[in-house]
Write a protein that binds this DNA or RNA. Structure first.
Length: 244
DNA sequence: ACAATATCCTGCGAGC
DNA sequence: TGCTCGCAGGATATTG
């Protein structure tokens, strides 16, 4: 399920491939990412937005399959294919990207500790796991990285945000930055069917400590990883290391 | 006002 | 072997 690191990986790869190309009589001048949305900017000010949701793939010069929902053909004969098994993903052409900026909270790789704390203060009763996944609070984090960040920070996913101590908030903040940056370096996590823009898997899943590791031993203390439901989503954590 | 849950979709794997 | 059923989750709508 593409989250910030996966979308950023696709953005970086596509940037080198398609900037300067022509698509439907428009010249591509840049690629951006906001939260989990990929943005292709055209010279005329319009933009093409993509959301991969859970099973979306954007593959440059990929071969169409039964799951290909759209093929974008560039003027030079190259192409971009949009695959999506579960059909949740979408693409949309927009006149400008003003609404995109307003819809999301700050980018986790750009935010400072002070702003992070300000964001946390908006939802003191929320569970920290749910808050990290709330795009209006912090943009781009989903189920995989929220679990991994909280494990690294030794914070229990059920904790109410308002009960977190200064020290714990600092740990969550630092590990959020560290894990997202490391995941981008490894071109994301391929747990189900995520592929990057080259059609290749990301390497970061090998570094996962808790996500989808229910019943396995915790690398830190040897305890057993547990899976519970928080807000209808699976949350994986070590009850011994991540105490309430 | 805010938090929690249901909903969309399809493939996969566990269990019988 | 083949069937059913639960599960995966991003974001929005709905309920509590």
């Amino acid at each position: 399920m593409p989250e910030l690191p996966e979308v950023e990986t696709v953005r970086r790869q596509l940037e080198r491939k398609i900037v300067g190309k022509e698509l439907a009589k428009k010249k591509i001048v840049g690629l951006r990412r906001r939260a989990k949305i990929l943005i292709i900017d055209f010279a005329d000010g319009q933009s093409l937005l993509f959301h991969l949701k859970m099973t979306g793939q954007l593959i440059f010069n990929g071969k169409p399959s039964q799951y290909t929902r759209k093929v974008f053909n560039f003027a030079d004969g190259s192409r971009l294919i949009f695959n999506d098994v579960r059909k949740f993903g979408w693409w949309k052409e927009v006149k400008d990207t003003k609404e995109i900026g307003e819809r999301f909270g700050p980018e986790p790789l750009e935010i400072n500790l002070k702003t992070f704390k300000t964001q946390l203060e908006k939802r003191p009763r929320s569970r920290i796991k749910s808050l990290l996944m709330d795009q209006k609070i912090i943009a781009g984090i989903g189920n995989i990285y929220s679990d991994e960040i909280l494990y690294a920070a030794k914070a229990n996913p059920l904790r109410r945000v308002g009960t977190l101590r200064e020290l714990e908030i600092g740990r969550i903040f630092r590990n959020m930055k560290r894990i997202l940056a490391a995941a981008i370096k490894h071109r994301g996590s391929s747990v189900e069917n995520y592929l990057d823009a080259r059609g290749e898997k990301g390497d970061f899943a090998q570094f996962h400590k808790v996500y989808r590791k229910e019943g396995q031993q915790c690398a830190r203390c040897g305890g057993l990883i547990k899976r519970i439901k928080i807000g209808g989503r699976s949350a994986h954590f070590c009850p011994a290391c991540q105490k309430q």
